[in-house]
């Protein structure tokens, strides 16, 4: 009797003890965050959404021709240039001046820096109008700002873009005064403005590989001068470039160089120096902008420009080379 009672008690005790112990075993979990990893601060899917939003705004504005609506998604030079293009397009009555900003990208260059401002870059696929692809730059000024289209250039035909880090890893931004490059991004733009303005006479000319833009001005200037000289009016052509106060954007390339993008303004002046000669605006766009202005012997065309160039690292033998530009006439005057 006694034994069995003891046994029964033991059984009951065991059962209860087992139950209670298993029941109380669960502990409060503690957060186990993943270690921070080096990665782009913008994921590709986020970038895609950003692109869609920006492209949506651009597309709507293009249709509605309401430039004010650009502001939420365009900033800096891009906003300025697009507004100009819209104005010009309005004056011309067609859409030819509008750069195709369809944002179907063949490559994205995402930021890896956690600080703001953050910049990302993207290269579009070849547009339908068979113009060259466009290199766009997006900017997030502060954490509470949205990514906005900050600038773009049309790539030069046949240009080879430098290599960038994998999009997942992100590419670090290069400060405007970065010393690891052949010249700092800011200086590169200044020197290039000089090279554009005086071409071979610039003391910086040797730093830059010859490029399509400079060749264009040579050809274009010659064309204008020849046209005026045909009338024996002693034509002259001059172009002046000057960086704007907008910051220079630069992103590190895989080889330690940088892709530098900056806004500039330029003015081309065509003059018929012979007394009594009068010249009018040369192109369809400038004609549209010209309007009723009296014709004189001078035509001044103001442009808004954007250039992108590759600046090699300091110890490189390569030259600084232009990869793309945008050259948008904004106003015309008779001097």
């Amino acid at each position: 009797m006694r034994r069995t009672t003891t046994r029964a008690t033991a059984v009951v005790a065991t059962v209860l003890a087992t139950g209670l112990l298993t029941g109380c075993a669960e502990e409060l979990p503690t957060p186990k965050p993943e270690a921070p990893v080096a990665a782009a601060v913008v994921t590709q899917s986020q970038e895609r959404e950003i692109l869609d939003k920006v492209a949506g705004v651009v597309g709507e504005v293009t249709k509605a021709k309401d430039a004010e609506k650009l502001e939420p998604r365009l900033s800096g030079p891009a906003l300025d240039i697009r507004e100009t293009q819209l104005k010009v397009a309005d004056a011309r009555g067609d859409t030819e001046p509008l750069t195709d900003l369809t944002m179907e990208m063949q490559q994205v260059i995402l930021p890896s820096d956690q600080e703001w401002p953050r910049s990302s870059f993207a290269i579009t696929v070849q547009p339908k109008d068979l113009t060259t692809p466009v290199l766009m730059s997006f900017d997030q000024a502060t954490a509470r700002d949205q990514y906005k289209l900050w600038g773009w250039v049309r790539l030069l035909p046949g240009v080879t873009m430098p290599q960038f880090a994998e999009a997942e890893l992100g590419s670090p931004a290069v400060p405007p005064d970065d010393e690891s490059l052949k010249v700092t991004p800011t200086d590169a733009i200044k020197q290039y403005a000089s090279a554009l303005t005086v071409d071979k006479d610039s003391k910086y000319a040797d730093s830059f590989a010859d490029d399509d833009l400079r060749q264009f001005f040579r050809d274009y200037g010659k064309l204008q001068v020849d046209a005026i000289n045909k009338e024996e009016c002693r034509g002259a052509f001059k172009v002046e470039y000057e960086p704007t106060k907008d910051p220079v954007k630069a992103v590190r390339t895989a080889d330690g160089g940088a892709l530098v993008m900056a806004a500039m303004i330029s003015q081309e002046t065509i003059t018929a120096r012979e007394e009594g000669c009068e010249i009018g605006p040369p192109t369809k766009t400038t004609q549209a902008l010209w309007g009723d202005t009296d014709v004189t012997n001078v035509v001044e065309v103001n442009y808004k420009d954007m250039v992108a160039m590759y600046v090699p690292p300091k110890d490189s033998d390569d030259e600084i080379s232009l990869v793309g530009y945008e050259h948008v006439p904004s106003s015309v005057s008779n001097g």
Binding site: E115, W116, P117, A141, T142, A143, R144, D145
Partner: peptide, 10 residues
Amino acid sequence: EAAEGEETDE
């Protein structure tokens, strides 16, 4: 950086 932006924004 963020603070700079905020001061202008808010």
